[in-house]
Amino acid sequence: DFRLPSDRPAFAAVLREALSRAAGERVEFACGGGIGRTGTALACLAVLDGVPAREAVAYVRAGYHPRAVETPWQRRFVRRYGAGTA
């Protein structure tokens, strides 16, 4: 819990595949609590889909769960993901 993806290139590849597949099928993300790591993945996915990185956490909190992306380092990861440095 409360962690970040350890293999960032693999994480990015999974997100790109999920975004591609979501056009024609259901795609799900899940973690133990369904808030922190799931929210982080959803926020990064939102960035890939065009949501500005600085707005992605608020976007996921509004549409998924108000506590999504639980930790400061998860929020920083999303911002850096949007800048291409995650």
Score class of each variant (00 low, 15 high):
Ala46Ile: 05
Arg21Cys: 12
Ala23Arg: 13
Val60Ser: 07
Ala13Glu: 15
Phe77Gln: 07
Phe2Met: 13
Ala18Lys: 04
Pro72Met: 05
Gly33Trp: 02
Ser6Gln: 15
Arg80Thr: 09
Ala41Phe: 09
Arg21Gly: 07
Phe2Trp: 11
Pro52His: 04
Gln74Thr: 10
His65Tyr: 02
Ala13Asn: 09
Cys31Met: 03
Arg61Thr: 03
Ser6Leu: 11
Ala10Thr: 10
Tyr81Glu: 11
Arg21His: 09
Asp7Leu: 00
Tyr81Ile: 07
Thr85Ser: 14
Pro9Ser: 02
Gln74Tyr: 03
Gly32Ile: 11
Arg75Gln: 14
Ala41Pro: 12
Glu17Thr: 10
Val57Ala: 06
Gln74Asp: 14
Cys44Thr: 04
Tyr64Gly: 01
Gln74Cys: 13
Gly63Trp: 01
Pro5Lys: 06
Asp7Cys: 00
Phe11Ile: 04
Pro66Asn: 08
Ala56Asp: 07
Arg21Pro: 09
Ala23Phe: 01
Ala58Cys: 08
Arg21Glu: 15
Leu45Asn: 07
Arg3Tyr: 10
Gly39Cys: 02
Thr38Asp: 04
Ala58His: 00
Arg79Pro: 09
Pro52Gln: 11
Phe11Gln: 07
Gln74Pro: 14
Ala13Thr: 05
Ser20Arg: 14
Val47Tyr: 02
Gly32Pro: 12
Ile35Leu: 12
Ala46His: 04
Arg54Val: 10
